[in-house]
Design a protein around this nucleic acid. Structure first.
Length: 464
RNA sequence: UCCUCAGUAGCUCAGUUGGUUAGAGCACCUGACUGUUAAUCAGGGGGUCGUCAGUUCGAGUCUGACCUGGGGAGCCA
């Protein structure tokens, strides 16, 4: 069969009827009657299937027997207005090509629903489900929208390294990158491993953040962003953590933390709005199947401004709350999941941005406030998923940054290049990191991060 | 890593106080039906009850360890 097939999505919207078409895809169901069969065919272009009508006596019996759930077929036929209810158009088949059968005694997917846990075990096939098709299309749309937003706002996409020689950010345990023989690595005289003999002549790891490098780009191109894989070797077993995830990190020269928050709010509202405008069918499916508040929640985020409060005010609210905390609240401690949930879901009932955290619980590079106690950090907290963005204004004054590095005992020799940006043409600047899969959790309404990335990498799991 | 819950047919699940041959729906096979919508109806095949050890006359059921998965927590995005 020639390669002139049309996408199911286009065929379903087509107004040119009574013409010959070719469609190719995977069978979802075949319903039988003695004289006529109905095949629901899906090619991934939309969550909807197209119905193929088959007059049984015009086709080989063995061929139709092989058209089972999961089989790949091509169909030539006439696109017509449907005689039945439930769809506008359908295809009267004149020719069916079987590309690949799917033995129904072995094929694990059925037309009935499967649990998300089971689908994780067959991640190589779960793309063929409605849920994962919807998530995959949404993930694509969000990736595209991220690039579009930044491009439209004169940001430049900066490719920061995957392999890094510095462990400076302290954002978590890192994965070692090495070509040394692990069974017999070269030793140093005073013990330990001699990494000078390793591929890069030094210890290297997978990146935990592209921020430090992004700052270098921002100090010339004004506005840049990264969007790439990020790795954390933490032994985190939760529905919100991955060992390999994708992070978006914009970095803007001449932005203070208020500008930073404005951007974070506008950016996330744009993404949610983009999903509502361009992926409504998929969102509607997820809303109906998994989370009937999803569409309302997405619309609410687009239509309402985020609440902005200081850390100090947040602590006051939590201390005054008529609620028992597992982790007691006092000024100076980091906010726990239960505290963030309370602020977002019960107190304000909308996304919340918390700013000006105590310096002791935040990273070394954050801009120090005049009070000597807080830094210009900002975390964006979303309902259901908690922290979706963490960011800050950066310390651009060399002496203050240098002092903070020394106070914390961070190996300065690894950061000489970062410090030089504060020596030559330093400028106020800000940025943030958005966990892409956390955003996907919010957009999709799903609750486990392993269901919004095609091939999740978690402790003890690198299958597929 | 800690706490907690679970693991029974290919999938989703039921299984009483420990007691004869472990059940249902879907899927699969056979048949019925002139357009179905997760089609329907009738019949049929399908099980090492997560693994190992223990208690008992007797274990899917009770105990322990381990494995796997879910939820919560920590770390964080």
């Amino acid at each position: 069969m020639e390669r002139t097939n049309e996408a199911v999505k286009d065929l379903l919207q087509s107004e040119a009827l009574n013409r010959e078409v070719i469609v190719k895809g995977w069978v979802r169901t075949r319903r039988g009657k003695k004289s006529v069969n109905f095949i629901a065919l899906n090619d991934g272009s939309t969550i909807h299937n197209i119905q193929i009508v088959v007059e049984v006596d015009q086709f080989d019996e063995d061929l139709l027997k092989s058209v089972t759930t999961g089989a790949a077929i091509g169909v030539r036929g006439t696109l017509v207005a449907s005689q039945g209810k439930g769809q506008h158009v359908e295809i009267q088949a004149s020719e069916i090509t079987l590309y690949g059968e799917a033995n129904p005694n072995e094929y694990p997917l059925q037309k009935k629903g499967h649990s998300l846990e089971f689908l994780r075990e067959i991640a190589h096939l779960r793309f063929r489900t409605n849920t994962f098709g919807a998530v995959t299309r949404l993930r694509h749309a969000m990736s595209f929208a991220i690039h579009k937003y930044f491009n439209d706002h004169r940001f430049y996409y900066l490719h920061t390294p995957i392999i890094t020689g510095s462990d400076a950010e302290g954002a978590g345990e890192m994965f070692r990158v090495t070509t040394l023989n692990m069974e017999n690595p070269p030793g140093r005289q005073n013990g330990g491993i001699d990494f000078s003999q390793d591929f890069f002549g030094k210890e290297t790891n997978l990146t935990v953040s592209g921020q430090l490098e992004a700052e270098l780009g921002a100090m010339a191109l004004s506005k840049v962003y990264t969007f790439g894989p990020t790795f954390r070797a933490e032994n985190s077993n939760t529905p919100r953590h991955l060992a390999e995830f994708w992070m978006v990190e914009p970095e803007m020269a001449f932005y203070d933390n208020d500008d930073n928050m404005d951007l974070a709010e506008d950016f996330t509202q744009y993404l949610v709005g983009y999903a509502l405008e361009n992926c409504y069918d998929d969102l509607e499916f997820l809303n109906n199947m998994y989370d009937n508040q999803l569409l309302d929640r997405l619309r609410f985020v687009v239509d309402n401004t985020y609440e902005r409060i200081t850390y100090t005010r947040a602590v006051e609210i939590l201390e005054g709350a008529d609620q028992k905390w597992e982790f007691p609240v006092e000024w100076g401690v980091d906010l726990q999941a239960e505290h963030e949930k309370y602020l977002v879901e019960q107190y304000f009932k909308k996304p919340v941005i918390v700013v000006d955290y105590p310096r002791e619980i935040k990273a070394f590079y954050m801009k120090q406030n005049e009070d000597g106690q807080t830094v210009r950090a900002m975390d964006v907290l979303f309902p259901k998923i908690g922290e979706v963005i963490g960011g800050s204004q950066r310390e651009e004054v060399y002496s203050k940054l240098n002092q903070r590095i020394e106070e914390l005992g961070i190996p300065k020799e690894q950061l000489w290049w970062y410090l030089e940006t504060r020596k030559y043409g330093t400028a106020p600047h800000s940025g943030f990191g958005l966990g892409f899969e956390r955003l996907m959790l919010f957009i999709s309404g799903l609750s486990n991060i392993r269901d919004v990335i095609p091939f999740p990498r978690t402790p003890n799991n690198a299958e597929f």
